[in-house]
């Protein structure tokens, strides 16, 4: 390599943009040629000086905190708590409770876990039946491209927002072999609540949503609704009064979910 070539390649060399053989050639030349290595050293220190004089401003103190608090509270996407105790309940009791109380729990401020589980399970029955190919105002179909707006990852967020609901759970069930098939907004105690529905190849469904009540539940399998056994998992969202709720078709699905989460 000649001097003029080495100089021509110098910027690319210093930017780390040369191919390996070209890089070697420049290196070799710089090792052998004093004037060129002088140019290189000068250029290197010039970059250093420019960096320290014009490229070393720091963000003002407190900017990080200001940014963190500027995030819209209403749009908090909830992530799973790192380690959560499984909180499953037996809802043989729930069914009884539901019968006894009717819709009482929908209007009472202090919700019992069992009551929520029962409501959730009912929603599950409703949602697992629906979506594919079905256009409803309160739901967004995501499967088989049967809705035109499903290609955008914003579709779900926009859908929730358009129904006045801004909070949703952030659990991704794709790792467990489920695909999102739909989203739905339910009115609950006058408040819109977001739910998403996921399904695997065998048609097993998980209904997944967020409940605004801190629920303490006993661990254990859950049996609910319409004479079918539906395990429910409730994961409190750390530091909030929210709880993520999952309803599964079968115990095996719940076990798969639990194992998948533990593997993480």
């Amino acid at each position: 390599m000649k001097c003029h070539e080495a100089k021509r390649h110098l910027d690319l060399f210093m930017d780390g943009e040369l191919s390996v053989p070209e890089n070697l050639k420049v290196l070799e030349h710089l090792n052998l040629c004093r004037p060129c290595s002088g140019v290189y050293e000068g250029e290197k220190s010039l970059r250093g000086v420019l960096r320290s004089t014009a490229g070393s401003d720091r963000a003002p103190a407190g900017l990080a905190d200001r940014l963190a608090t500027s995030l819209p509270k209403a749009e908090i996407p909830f992530a799973p708590p790192v380690s959560s105790r499984r909180r499953l309940i037996s809802a043989a009791a729930a069914a009884v409770f539901t019968l006894a109380t009717g819709t009482f729990f929908l209007s009472t401020p202090a919700e019992k876990p069992q009551a929520i589980a029962a409501v959730v399970a009912k929603m599950h029955e409703k949602t697992r039946a629906g979506f594919c190919g079905e256009k409803r105002d309160d739901s967004l179909c995501l499967c088989n491209g049967c809705c035109s707006d499903t290609n955008s990852s914003h579709a779900v967020g926009n859908f929730f927002k358009s129904h006045g609901a801004r909070q949703n759970c952030a659990h991704n069930l794709q790792d467990l072999g489920y695909k999102p098939i739909g989203a739905s907004v339910w009115q609950r105690r006058g408040q819109p609540v977001c739910w998403t529905v996921w399904r695997d190849d065998q048609g097993h469904t998980i209904t997944h949503g967020l409940v605004t009540t801190k629920i303490a539940m006993e661990p254990g399998p859950l049996l609910v609704c319409d004479g079918k056994e539906r395990p429910v998992e409730m994961i409190p969202v750390a530091g909030t009064d929210k709880t993520c709720v999952f309803v599964f078709d079968e115990k095996a699905d719940w076990a798969r979910f639990r194992d998948g989460r533990e593997a993480k």
């Binding site: 996407p77 914003h154 949703n168 759970c169 952030a170 991704n172 998403t196």
Partner: peptide, 8 residues
């Protein structure tokens, strides 16, 4: 597809 839901 539901990426908007899966943010941390």
């Amino acid at each position: 597809m539901l990426q908007s839901l899966t943010v941390e």
